[in-house]
Structure formats: C-alpha cells, structure tokens
C-alpha cells in the first residue's frame, strides 16, 4: 500500500507568479474579452450601446472590400516572411559559423541598435530615401537611370516590413544556428555530404525551431503593421490595420473595427500554432 503524498500549495511560488497572472488578466485577457463583446455592440449617434447583435459581423464579412484587404494583408505578410527568412539566413549562417566571436558580438550589437529608434521615425526616414527626389533616385539619375516610383507602392511597404523584421530575424536565426553541434555538420561532410546539401539536410533541420520562430515573428509583425503600408505604401490598397483605423475613425464604428481585429487575431493564432506545431514536430511523425 502506498501513501499519497500530501500536496500543499506552494504559496511562495504562487506569490511570485501572481503579478504576471494579474497583469495578463487585467491588460490582455480582460481587454480581449471586452473586444469580443464589443463586436456585438451597436453604434447610435456616434455612441456605442451595449447589445448582442450579429449585424457588425454580418456587415463586415459580407463586404468584398473586407476580404480583398484580408487576402492582400495575408499575401504581404507571407511575402515579407519569405523574403526576410531567405535574406536573413546567409547572414545568420555567416555569423553563426564563419565569423569570429568578436565579429559576431559586434554584429549582434549593430542589429540591436535599430530598435533604439522609434520604428515610425525610421519609416519617415525611409520616405526621404525612397521618394521620387530621394537619395536612391538621385543616385540612379547620376548613372542615367530612373527615377523609379518606390514610395507609395507595395515595394515601399515591403521595405518597411524588412526594416521592422530583418534585424530581429537575423538575431533569432543566429542564436538558433549557433547552438547547433558543429560536429554533426563535420560528420555529414565526412560522410560525403556537400556543403549545400549539408545546409539543407543537417543545418536547417537542426535549427528548425529557431528558424520557424523567426519566421513566425516576421509574420506577426508584418500582418499587424500599420505604419509601413500607410506611410510607405500610401494605403494603396489598405491593409487590415488601416481598415481598423478607417472604420473606427469614421462614424465611431468601434464594433466593426473589433470584428476586423478579432479576425486578425484568429488568423495569427492559426498561423502561429500551425508553425509552432511544425517547428516542434519530431522527425518521422
């Protein structure tokens, strides 16, 4: 016969966890639930009235412009994620495997520095760089080409997304690659695996979790970003974040803006859980 050990609550541990739980409850779960409730409210004479009506959902989801914006936002975020991941990988690979310890430290430092400045300020700086009369076009005209329209285009939006995501992606990928046991790569080489093949069949699977997490961060940041599509893309066409601003600004339609926001959150949850599931999936499964 075995005696069941007495389990007494560990008040000390609970006390340390409590602030985080309270914080998340008050400032994340609470507002989130309120936003869900708000999506069923009605607006009369610019004032919200508590109600339980599906009219906001029906109205927004039945509009073509909502779905156009949805798929456009999804496409831009996926494209930004793909470009960022591909562009970041060679840099991360170099920093993780080829660069000296000192170079890597300095590189990480310089990758963190952009975050010292407000993202909005950086985007305004890019307006000057990408403008018709900006730095790049001035350089192009010097060699007799251009000017090219870069500002207020999807290219401009993409530049903004990369400004936001690329440093973060390089940092996350570098940390992930740096933790790989290099003896496994050497073993692959010893067994006749070429350099490129080793990258795809050994390095990338081993760093899969970090690479996916970096990609997920890119997707989340790009999907929800307002600044780049508005100030570098000219809101042409608008993304879901711009639609939230438009909807709430005009006629105080916060409930309809909540519908857009909830749709975005659900999309992000699906993408994030799918990606994380893929990242942690064991081989052979």
């Amino acid at each position: 016969m075995t005696t069941k050990p007495t389990t007494r609550p560990d008040y000390y541990a609970i006390a340390w966890r409590l602030p985080l739980i309270v914080w998340q409850g008050l400032f994340f779960v609470g507002p989130l639930l309120f936003m869900v409730a708000m999506s069923f409210f009605l607006v009369k004479n610019y004032r919200m009235e508590a109600a339980f009506q599906f009219s906001n959902w029906q109205r927004m989801l039945s509009k073509d412009f909502f779905w156009d914006a949805y798929f456009f936002t999804l496409w831009l975020a996926l494209l930004a994620t793909a470009i960022t991941s591909v562009v970041a990988f060679p840099a991360s690979y170099f920093l993780a495997f080829k660069a000296s310890e000192k170079t890597r430290r300095w590189a990480i430092f310089f990758l963190i520095i952009p975050f010292f400045t407000s993202y909005l300020v950086r985007v305004f700086a890019w307006q000057v760089i990408l403008a018709q009369s900006g730095v790049i076009n001035a350089g192009l005209s010097f060699i007799g080409i251009g000017p090219w329209q870069m500002l207020n285009t999807q290219f401009g939006t993409m530049v903004g997304y990369l400004v936001l995501c690329l440093p973060l992606a390089v940092i996350l990928q570098t940390f992930s690659l740096a933790n790989i046991d290099t003896r496994l790569v050497e073993a692959a080489h010893n067994l006749g695996c070429g350099r490129l093949r080793a990258v795809f069949t050994v390095v990338m699977p081993l760093a899969k979790t970090g690479l996916v997490v970096a990609a997920v961060f890119c997707f989340i940041l790009s999907f929800g970003d307002f600044v780049s599509p508005y100030y570098l893309g000219g809101s042409k066409p608008p993304t879901l974040s711009i639609m939230i601003v438009d909807t709430s600004k005009s006629g105080q339609q916060w409930p309809r803006a909540a519908v857009v926001a909830i749709t975005m959150i659900l999309t992000l949850l699906v993408v994030a859980f799918t990606a994380i599931g893929f990242a942690y999936r064991k081989r052979g499964k």
Binding site: D64, F65, F72, P237, P238, D246, T247, S250, G251, Q253
Partner: peptide, 14 residues
C-alpha cells in the same frame, strides 16, 4: 455618412 464611408473603403481597395 456610413454609405459614403463604405463606398470610400471600397474605392480605396479597388
């Protein structure tokens, strides 16, 4: 105003 605003959103997305 809602009708005008909704059309404006459609226009922006076109």
């Amino acid at each position: 105003l809602e009708d005008w605003n909704e059309f404006w959103q459609e226009y922006k997305n076109a």
